[in-house]
């Protein structure tokens, strides 16, 4: 078969991951790792980093600059059906990157690190290639916004609390 070396390397890498599957990776570490990966993609280096956190506007969504982008970065907190939901999307860019539209464009090009909590407990959120989000609670549908995925999780949880020791292989 063509290109077998690279692809077998792939399978080998996943087999290594498989060996670890019973152990859930702590959320915080996952976020940090993803942020570093993202920074590497954007800057080509994991050098000095500074977080660029979306500011919350009057409606809880980011202001006009990011509204022009396909997916606004989010930072929200609200009560939905009696549950406190909050979420944020953060993109890491190199410290000292030029300010203004160029840096913002580069930030938007990256994969945001996301954090969503329901009543203070972390909800593991993943992304699809089209940029939408899904969570451990809703694994077979996706949503354009973090707020959407958080609300859907509240709907699905029907009052249950998220586990502090979730089972997931990621």
């Amino acid at each position: 078969m063509i290109g077998s070396r690279g692809t077998r390397g792939t399978a080998g890498a996943l087999a290594g991951a498989a060996a670890r599957w019973p152990t859930a990776r702590p959320l915080a570490r996952r976020i940090v790792l993803r942020a570093l990966l993202t920074a590497g993609v954007i800057a080509g280096t994991a050098g000095a980093l500074a977080p660029v956190l979306a500011r919350r506007g009057a409606d809880g969504v980011r202001g006009p600059a990011s509204e022009r982008s396909p997916r606004s970065l989010e930072d929200f907190a609200e009560t939905y059906r009696g549950r406190h939901i909050q979420g944020s999307a953060t993109v890491m860019v190199p410290a000292g990157a030029p300010a203004g539209t160029d840096a913002e464009a580069r930030a938007r090009a990256g994969v945001p690190s996301v954090e969503v909590r329901i009543d203070g407990r972390p909800l593991h959120v993943m992304r699809r290639a089209d940029g939408s989000y899904l969570s451990m609670v809703n694994h077979y549908e996706s949503f354009p916004t973090l707020r959407g995925v958080a609300r859907a999780a509240v709907d699905e949880l029907a009052g249950a609390q998220l586990s502090l020791t979730p089972t997931h292989g990621h």
């Binding site: 996943l14 994969v111 993943m126 699809r128 089972t167 292989g169």
Partner: peptide, 15 residues
Amino acid sequence: RMHGAYYVTDAEERP
């Protein structure tokens, strides 16, 4: 647990 462990999405940089 195995099913959860192999739920990798298409935005992830892994097999």
